[in-house]
Amino acid sequence: MRSPSLQPRQSGFTLLEVVVSVALFAIIAALAYGGLDSVLRARAQMAEQAAALARIQFAVGQIERDLRAIADRPVRDAQGQSQPALFGTSTGFELSRHGYANALGAARAEIERASYRRQQQNLLRLRWPVLDRAPGTRPDEVELLTGVSDFRLRYFSRNGREYDRWPAPGNTELRPRRVEVEIEVEGLGRIRRLLELPEIEAIP
């Protein structure tokens, strides 16, 4: 028979070794989670900023498309007063534009009347179903942008003179040569674009 002292010794971890291993694993896991959480937060913040910037670009692009499609078509407002093809102040504008979609070939003009204005913290685009409005005519509103803290417009004549409204006092031009759009959005700062209007023929 073998002596007990000659039997192979069983290998294993002591309780202290297990406790130390678990503690080290917990520390490493906590550090890894903290790093991963920071990366995920930064990624989410970047995605949010990219989405907000895309919304601003879309809004400015819509304004540019409307201005570049301007039609020299005056309208009558709900009070029966004549309004020019483009009427603007430093905080909003209204214009007649070409390109009113008519896929069904309905018997109507392919020009629409659209307007931009800031209401509280929202930038709105309004469009009217008809050009010459009746007292009860209501526009359709589309929210283009949120978190807008400022919306400013400037109008430039052919000689480069700047105005805060259009038609400009003492100026006989039917439309400005350029319009500067300035939008300030919370968290993204102020964006400024100078948009050039095309030369167009008057509509009889």
Rank of each mutant, 00 (worst) to 15 (best):
R2L: 14
S3I: 07
P4I: 06
P4M: 12
P8E: 12
R9H: 13
Q10Y: 10
S11R: 11
G12D: 02
G12K: 05
L15A: 11
E17D: 07
V20L: 15
V20G: 08
V22I: 15
L24M: 14
F25T: 14
A26W: 09
I28Q: 09
A32M: 11
A32K: 06
Y33G: 10
G34K: 12
S38I: 10
R41W: 11
R41G: 11
A42K: 06
R43Q: 15
A47S: 13
A51M: 12
A54Q: 15
R55H: 09
F58P: 03
Q62G: 12
Q62R: 15
E64L: 08
E64S: 14
E64T: 14
E64P: 07
E64V: 10
R65S: 15
R65C: 10
R68L: 03
A69W: 03
A71R: 01
D72W: 13
D72F: 13
P74S: 13
P74W: 10
D77W: 01
Q79R: 06
S82F: 07
A85G: 01
L86G: 02
F87H: 11
T91H: 14
T91A: 15
G92R: 04
A103N: 02
G105M: 05
R108L: 09
A109I: 08
E110M: 07
I111H: 04
S115V: 03
S115D: 05
Y116W: 09
R118A: 04
Q120E: 14
Q121Y: 08
N122L: 11
R127K: 05
W128M: 00
L131S: 00
L131P: 01
P139T: 00
D140P: 06
V142N: 12
E143F: 10
L145T: 02
L145D: 02
S149F: 03
S149T: 15
F151A: 07
R152I: 09
Y155N: 02
Y155F: 00
F156D: 01
R158K: 13
E162V: 07
Y163E: 03
Y163W: 09
P167M: 08
A168Y: 02
P169V: 01
P169M: 06
G170H: 05
T172E: 14
T172D: 15
E173F: 11
L174P: 11
R175V: 11
I183M: 05
V185K: 02
E186G: 10
E186D: 13
G187T: 05
R190L: 07
R190P: 02
I191E: 00
R192W: 04
R192I: 04
R192K: 04
R192F: 00
R192M: 03
R192G: 01
L195A: 03
P198L: 05
P198W: 06
I200K: 12
A202L: 15
